[in-house]
Design a protein around this nucleic acid. Structure first.
Lengths: 161, 161
DNA sequence: GCTGAAATCACACATTA
DNA sequence: TAATGTGTGATTTCAGC
């Protein structure tokens, strides 16, 4: 499937929605200087193409109670392709895990998890990294302060193809 | 300011919106088994309280062109409170930087940046980490595969206060 | 939680490049 | 031919009760 060519209007739409998707289609059309039906069509196409993957509400977790983020570097013991896949599938099922990246060089994965406190992390780590086989090494940092959080870099910084 | 007490309905609303905020208020009301006006009021309160921080569209960056994520551990040279703040403010201004966490133990910060390719990362790193003073050490991993990405862990996993 | 007015959405159609 | 702009009905939002 050929990646459909995005024009400047598409990029402007993406640029607006990636920072604020709470606005109405009418408001969107005003911001990108296009008509409402045009915006509606563009957004639908972008969504069907999977370029707009999904639309979510970001929640300020700290306001719901104590929050501890753990950033974990994981190295596997055996490193065949199926071992990577297996770890990935396994770890992604865990609700507390919010992000998982396959990386190189260094460790095999970087995992970010969100838990209430250190006790909860200990329980999580015990469950994910100890009982699960095929873990060679785990290195954990903790963070209670997230200075910046974006799902994507601004699209206008990217090329149009 | 006292954190307002969230009841079960609030948590159900947050639970839905944090995975899919593209739905209408009417659809939301159906999913959480409440009336539409009630949902509308709750969502407004949650938004004004900052519990719903914002609503965004997540874009599949890979569909817009080649994408390379860099996960960077940064250690500062001087580590006074104002040095931390200065680095944070400086790095957050960079559009390519999508996430920045202050961590412990280990490095002082974990930074995630999104660039088209290695050349762009090199340019970014040169700009952010070399010319900027007060950097002791930088350790970078690259990732082209993000197995999981959520802004938050599911709210239903958290306590109601 | 329900009802009604106002706004918005979403579609079919005519139009233009 | 394909995409944009105009007009209409249905739906939704959001106020007061």
């Amino acid at each position: 499937m050929a990646s459909l060519t995005l024009d400047d209007l598409d990029l402007r739409i993406l640029g607006v929605l990636q920072t604020d998707a709470s606005i109405s289609n009418l408001e969107l059309s005003r911001r990108v200087h296009a008509s409402a039906p045009t915006c509606l069509r563009r957004v639908r196409v972008l969504r069907e193409a999977g370029i707009i993957a999904r639309q979510i509400a970001i929640i300020d977790a700290a306001k719901l109670g104590p929050t501890l983020r753990a950033i974990v570097e994981v190295s596997l013991d055996r490193q065949a392709a199926e071992d990577y896949d297996a770890f990935e599938a396994y770890i992604c099922e865990e609700p507390a895990v919010t992000q998982c990246y396959r990386v190189s060089p260094g460790p095999d994965f970087v995992v970010i998890a969100e838990v209430p406190d250190m006790a909860a992390y200990d329980e999580l780590a015990r469950r994910l990294f100890k009982s699960a086989a095929n873990i060679r090494n785990v290195r954990t940092f903790f963070s209670t302060r997230c200075a910046k959080f974006e799902a994507n870099a601004p699209v206008h910084a990217k090329a149009s193809r």
